[in-house]
């Protein structure tokens, strides 16, 4: 295993987190969370990858003869995509509500003193 996939994942993650911290628009901020999330797909696929291996589809019983990439990591990446899509959709819906109720799409920089 080389260090390159880890480095790429770390860089994408750092970019996404930086964007989340620095964004001035809610939609950008949410997209940056998605970017950070996509670093985990890279990480998952790279730990399941094996040089020279084919897709993990085995038609005959003794599967050990055929070299395939790790199917578990791919299944996990798929689950991860679903989780991420659900979160992003919900975040965007909330951002829309913030925009509708106050006309602003900037992240809150002031603590609200209201509430119960």
């Amino acid at each position: 295993m080389t260090i390159v996939p880890y480095a790429v994942a770390a860089a994408v993650f750092a970019l996404g987190i930086y964007g989340t911290i620095a964004s001035r628009t809610l939609v950008y901020q949410i997209l940056c969370v998605s970017v950070a999330q996509s670093s985990t797909y890279i990480l998952l696929l790279s730990i399941g990858f094996r040089n020279g291996a084919g897709p993990p589809i085995f038609l005959s019983a003794p599967a050990s003869r055929v070299l395939g990439v790790d199917p578990v990591a791919q299944a996990l990446a798929l689950t991860d995509v679903v989780v991420s899509a659900a979160t992003t959709a919900l975040l965007l819906a909330l951002a829309l509500r913030v925009h509708e109720s106050g006309g602003s799409s900037e992240p809150a920089r002031q603590r609200s003193e209201s509430g119960e």
């Binding site: 969370v33 985990t40 979160t87 975040l91 951002a95 609200s112």
Partner: peptide, 24 residues
């Protein structure tokens, strides 16, 4: 209230990033 939506957006954003840490 707008403040309520902002509160839940904060909740969701911070905790999504926290979730990323756990996953990583």
């Amino acid at each position: 209230r707008k403040s309520a939506y902002e509160g839940s957006l904060q909740f969701a954003l911070v905790n999504s990033v926290a979730g990323l840490f756990v996953l990583g």
